[in-house]
Design a protein around this nucleic acid. Structure first.
Lengths: 217, 217
DNA sequence: GGTATAATAGAACAAAAGTTCCCTTAACCT
DNA sequence: AGGTTAAGGGAACTTTTGTTCTATTATACC
């Protein structure tokens, strides 16, 4: 019997909440019997019945004929996210630096930051890493002390972009706005107190491009 | 036979990749037979065998005796994330405004932004919503035109915090830094071009507190 | 080359999980 | 009250899915 889109009953609502909690806690959907016991439904046929109603109401979807096929509509899936390795602190003021992490460092990082895929466009996961910004030399670029910065290490150079810059003769890495100027780079701290300066392109490597800035408050 | 932590073979690696892809694509783990066909393993017993090896190598974990119990270690689980409803644009300069969305508006939002739970601390999902910042009146607070702002609508007031402020007599909502000043609020645009101003606490509602700022570049 | 050991394939088996059927109970309407 | 319809309960049944067993093939070692 076809059921119209209609209000769901109380037990259906409690089933829905249980399914959602189960997925969030366990990372996989529950079985019918899990639902029966978890949501205190009296019989398996009632579970089946209510699932039909929930689907007709547009609250869930499920693939028939396979186990653990229930999914709450709109619940984020693991594929909506990437995890990005946290590779240290970058002092916008210079002095200390972190080199671009290599493939091994990326794979073996201890801290991983989950990032919504929609934030970083079509970047590949292997190309991304995260840094914590330190110092205030980039405040005019809206980057503050403590901000989380997602970097891309295989970028196309664009003049005027924000980059992690490695100055090999000084052994320091720093976050700056970069302009190409003949055989030199112009590095511009985005802070009115600090002056831009020029460095030799020979001894300079652009290690990564800023893709995304995240600040928790 | 107990197996030491050891390098995994080529077919085990390909199984591992398949399982990961399957979870990312489908949101639930595969069955043994899914793995067999997806990773081109010749027999079910080989799947079982390789799964043991992968577990001994620390690459996966699985709950025995239940279906679709495989999980790739380190893969983010749905519970690591929340989705936050996108509720419109807030013009930092004033003029137009969006009211705090009510429970219904939150539930029925069209756009949802996936957000890592670690970003928003222990905030409850029902309390959060997202706005798109427009205008440049908050540039000194490091909020730029186009930034994504995560708001909390059940907050504890803290002097000097960033809030979405509703001025009911002017019917406008705007993003400002707020200080309490007797029976008035001092609203401070964070832009040297703009002056702070005072409003009557009677006609003012703090609709949400800025929890997090995200900028894609 | 022969023997021991591990890897493999295939099938059978057992447990888990989805589906259906039938009977009972409650609600509703005239 | 009687009849109709929807909701509920329980169990049997079928399919899916995990597990195990054995025979076979490949590999390594002496």
């Amino acid at each position: 019997m076809a059921r119209q889109n209609q209000r769901i009953t109380e037990s259906q609502q409690s089933m829905l909440s249980f399914i959602q909690d189960y997925i969030l806690t366990n990372g996989r959907p529950p079985t019918f019997r899990d639902i029966q016991h978890g949501a205190n439904i009296s019989s398996l046929s009632m579970v089946s019945h209510h699932l039909d109603a929930l689907r007709d109401a547009g609250e869930i979807e499920f693939s028939e004929g396979s186990s653990r096929g229930v999914w709450v509509k709109g619940l984020p899936k693991p594929g909506d996210f990437m995890r990005v390795p946290m590779c240290g602190v970058i002092t916008c003021d210079g002095e200390h630096g972190v080199p671009t992490p290599d493939a091994d460092a990326l794979r073996n990082a201890e801290d991983w930051i989950p990032v919504a895929r929609s934030l970083v466009g079509n970047a590949k996961m292997e190309d991304l890493y995260a840094l914590r910004a330190s110092g205030d030399s980039m405040i005019d670029a809206m980057i503050n002390d403590g901000d989380l910065i997602i970097m891309h290490r295989n970028f196309d150079y664009k003049d005027g972009g924000l980059y992690a810059v490695m100055l090999s003769d000084r052994n320091e890495t720093t976050l700056k706005r970069v302009f190409k100027d003949g055989k030199k780079f112009k590095l511009k701290p985005e802070n009115p107190r600090l002056k831009p300066f020029w460095v030799d392109a020979q001894t300079t490597q652009l290690q990564g491009r800023v893709v995304c800035v995240v600040r928790a408050m």
